[in-house]
Design a protein around this nucleic acid. Sequence first.
DNA 1: AGCACA
Length: 272
Amino acid sequence: MARPPYEYDPYYPQPDQDRNLVNTLFVSGLPDDVKAREIHNLFRRRACFDYCQLKYTGRGNQVVAFATFLNHQSAIAAMHALNGVKFDPQAGSVLHIELARSNSTRKRKPGSGPYVVIDNRTKASANVTQEASSDDGDSDPEEPSWADNADSSNNDEIQTVKSDTVLEHSAPAANDQLERTINEGAQPCSTLFIANLGPNCTESELKEVISKYPGFNMLKIRTKGGMPVAFADFEEIEQATKVMTDLQSSLLPSSDRGGMHIEYARSKMRKQ
DNA sequence: AGCACA
């Protein structure tokens, strides 16, 4: 009754394991034609890299990856080194890397290839009904529910790929028209919405970076549910767009969970 | 993923 809602109930399963123990990175922002080999080559030079998984989520053409290291520190180091990297300079896709919610448990079997591919696409296309209703009875003990909406799946078919032989998926154009709007999703707007800030991020810290850009109008930070988000207003949409692409996934001194995530705001900031 | 100000 008088118990505050945030106090842990000892009978309720702990929501997160200790992030200091997580050795696995969650990688998004990948182009939909990414190959497991590319993820492997992205991480293979990093110290203590173990192996990676590529997962076709079955949501549109969305692809995410998991990179597992031998220890937490190496995972963090690789995250900082590679977060925000332009993965496909032509298409402009920028990597967004954060710690996974839990360690990868799909161990690469000894003697198998250096990476693992999980493909939920065919299942999803057979399942084109509505995914809004049933929030999957997912209880695959092999896969501790991953980050984000990446796991709207039931059972994974796991496929191990030998050496440099990459999964050839037969009908790439089939799902193309289903959802091509899973990028920043929103309409262009001259106000930006900025999330994934560290809990200690301050308005002046963010302003220092953002106000250097032409057209900057004003910045507002507000904290909802413990985590700050920011709105940055510019004169023109083009100026906002420039800032979004420039600063996407970049780190502030206060960042503790990867780089900023920037989108167009849903509505223009009001005049004061 | 998380979008307020009036």
